[in-house]
Amino acid sequence: MNDIPEVIRTIPLNYYLFFSTALFCIGIIGVLTRRNAIIIFMCIELMLNSVNLLLTAFSSYRSDPNGQIFVFFIMAVAAAEVAVGLAIIVMIYRNVRSTDINILNKLKW
């Protein structure tokens, strides 16, 4: 199993870096431009996953498992977040019959 990093290293680190940064930016742009709570939420998940990817890449390049352990925790925490997030979205949907965040303007920004 020790050889896996070498295989991964056939692709330069920068590619991973650029790729996950791109994913991350897509996520950010999604969060900022979309108006549907679920889609925003998915964009956030995309951001988290780009982080996972990046951490894994770094971890492999450094032959250091810590990064991947971090990924594990991110996944677990993200799951908890998903649970809470979905619960919140469902709660709102039941009250206002919509998941469009523009409806949520009772509080001024």
């Binding site: 996944m75 799951a79 469902v90």
Partner: peptide, 22 residues
């Protein structure tokens, strides 16, 4: 809208499944 139970099941699944992954 459908019964909230289904959502609860879904949410529980997400949590337990991730714990199983550990």
């Amino acid at each position: 809208p459908i019964s909230i139970k289904y959502f609860l099941i879904a949410i529980l699944f997400v949590l337990f499944d991730v714990e199983v992954i550990f």
